[in-house]
Write a protein that binds this DNA or RNA. Structure first.
Lengths: 213, 213
DNA sequence: GGTTTAAAGGGTGTTTTCCCCATTTCTATA
DNA sequence: TATAGAAATGGGGAAAACACCCTTTAAACC
């Protein structure tokens, strides 16, 4: 029985070649490949064969490794997560462990180290690399601090229009609402995102992944 | 007769798995792998079988891709060099081309693109990726609508401010220019980016990576 | 039943953005 | 030298964005 592995990395070349490498190891089977967290969410949807292990990159567009790990921990707690990044900054590492990863590997390690880590995490649930030391279970809980605001469906809809070239008048037309109502959404979103301008709203919406480029 | 390829990348995991991928392509044969420029120099020494193509990462410790490319161009001019990086900043790209590379690929391309680029560079000596345009010998200013426009330093500076919560009046203050002047930049950037609002300008600047979130 | 909360609509005024117009200055090049 | 072309400057005005002030309606809660 092969160990089922999932990969998330925005660099397709790395993703595909790493996938190939894992397949050649005989003990592993790559069951899902994704370019970022959003992509992963789509691809896991309705999948009955979930991976045992996920290799997750930290820096990715749209939905990064930290968000992805947090999402996986919440929705698929059986999947053990190994962070795989060239980002060796403490903040990133700590955030990943807080989000729920079991190990943190740097991309400059030798493939044999990755293989060892995969086996260890699969068997014991954790792996301490030379560079990054972890106390299993030390970090945990402590949900997100600056959690994204909760938006009503219409606010989300409105937000998508805001992040485009439409004027509020045009948005009102599109949404079949009066200009005043739309202005109300604007004000409430300014409040929720803590911004003072449409540009600021757009940027925050992008940062908080309510919309994408 | 297989095409002989050399690889230089400090991320061992990427290096090894990419090497494996190239080997599986049948048309290619990896004859040298190195972790940085110095490593490459050592490994090429006294080698009678030189690679036809070199895939060189840009950001590496000890001796980076730019130095490596310059060294290769000088000492092994027969080797055609393809830059392979996640660094999409203009300065890095231009430096690599000046150092003598034939093509510049981002690591997030699909493997098929890499394969195509390898064949093209081997046959024709150059490859124009969608993102990075090159004319053998010198850059071409292509009229491609999707290609990033050329910005003056002040326009770039102005653009960074636009992608923030500052008003044009405040930007004028920051840049020590009159409001009318920055309005001129605004207009010229609207023209260059093909947009008609500040929000559109921000989004295009993000898409074309003149600024980041 | 009364109160609260939220969505939707409305009015008004200020500020900012956007788009014309035109002038000066400097530089590069025929 | 002349001229063409940018970069910088300015005025004025229409439209959009923003900030407050409100009322109505309807569901939700005590």
């Amino acid at each position: 029985m092969k160990i089922k592995v999932g990969l998330v990395d925005d660099h397709q070349l790395f993703l595909k070649s790493l996938s190939l490498m894992l397949e050649t190891l005989q003990n592993f089977e790559v069951v899902v490949e994704a370019l970022n967290g959003q992509d992963l969410q789509r691809k896991l949807e309705g999948k009955n064969e979930l991976p045992d292990l996920m290799l997750v990159d930290v820096n990715m567009p749209l939905m990064d490794g930290i968000e992805t790990t947090a999402w996986l921990t919440e929705h698929h707690p059986s999947i053990k997560i190994i962070a795989l990044s060239m980002n060796d900054k403490d903040t990133a590492i700590i955030k990943m462990f807080k989000a729920g990863c079991c190990a943190y590997l740097l991309k400059d390690v030798h493939p044999s180290v990755l293989e060892k880590a995969l086996h260890e995490v699969y068997k014991k649930g954790y792996y301490n690399s030379d560079a990054i030391q972890l106390n299993p279970g030390h970090f945990l809980k402590n949900p997100n601090k600056d959690s994204p605001p909760t938006l009503t469906p219409k606010e989300q809809h409105f937000l998508k229009y805001v992040c485009s070239e439409l004027t509020y008048k045009q948005i009102a037309g599109e949404m079949q609402l009066s200009e005043r109502t739309v202005d109300g959404y604007r004000e409430s979103l300014f409040q929720k995102f803590g911004v003072q301008s449409r540009v600021g709203l757009c940027l925050e919406a992008l940062r908080k992944e309510f919309v994408s480029l």
